[in-house]
Simulated scan of single mutants.
Amino acid sequence: MALRFGIIGCGSIGGFLGRLLTREDPELAGRARLTAVAGRDRARTRELAAELGCDPLGVPELLASADVDAVLLCTPSGTHAEFGAAVLRAGKHLLVEKPIDVSPAAADRLISVARQEGGTLGVISQRRFDPAARLARTAIEAGELGRITSVVIELPWWREPSYYTSGTWRGTRFLDGGGALMNQGVHAVDLAQWLAGPVVEVAAHTALLAHGDIEVEDVATASLRFANGALGVLLATTAAYPGRTARISVHGDRGSVVIDNDELEYFHAAHEGERAPAYGAFGSANQAAEHAPSQKRDETRDRIGLLYQPHRDQLLDFLDAVREGRPPLADADAGRQAVAVVTAVYTSAATGGPVRVSTGTQHEEDTR
Rank of each mutant, 00 (worst) to 15 (best):
E117V: 09
D101T: 07
P76D: 03
A50F: 05
C54A: 05
K92T: 01
D55E: 14
P76T: 09
R44K: 14
R46Y: 02
G53I: 00
E61P: 07
S103C: 00
I100F: 12
G84A: 02
P104Y: 04
L73M: 08
E82P: 01
K98R: 15
R44V: 11
L48K: 03
G118N: 08
G58Q: 09
D108P: 03
L63D: 02
E82A: 15
A70E: 00
R44W: 12
L52M: 11
R115M: 00
E61M: 09
L52C: 12
A66H: 12
E51M: 02
I124E: 13
R46F: 01
S77R: 10
P99D: 06
L63K: 03
L88D: 08
L52D: 07
S112I: 03
P76Y: 05
K98D: 12
A107I: 00
L88H: 01
G53R: 00
A90V: 08
L52V: 02
L110W: 04
A90M: 05
L95K: 06
V96N: 06
L95Q: 04
C74Y: 05
C74T: 08
L95F: 06
G84S: 05
G122R: 04
A81Q: 15
R89P: 13
S125C: 13
D55L: 15
D108L: 14
A66F: 06
G122H: 06
L48E: 02
D69V: 09
L88P: 07
L95V: 06
E82H: 08
V87I: 12
P99A: 08
L62I: 14
A50E: 12
D108A: 15
L121P: 14
V102E: 01
D101K: 01
V113K: 09
R89L: 10
V102Y: 05
L52F: 02
R128H: 13
V68S: 00
P60S: 07
E61T: 13
G118C: 12
G58N: 09
F83Y: 13
L63Y: 14
A43H: 05
I111G: 01
L63H: 07
V68Q: 01
D101V: 00
S112V: 08
L57D: 06
E82M: 15
A105W: 06
G119E: 02
L88V: 05
L52H: 07
A85W: 09
I124W: 15
L62D: 04
S125W: 04
G78K: 00
L57V: 06
R44S: 08
E82K: 14
L73K: 01
V96G: 03
V113W: 08
R44H: 11
K92I: 07
L57I: 13
A106Q: 14
G119H: 04
Q126A: 13
R44D: 00
D67Y: 04
A70Q: 08
P99T: 11
E97P: 08
K98A: 00
D67V: 04
K92L: 09
D67P: 05
G122Y: 04
A86Q: 13
R46A: 12
P76R: 01
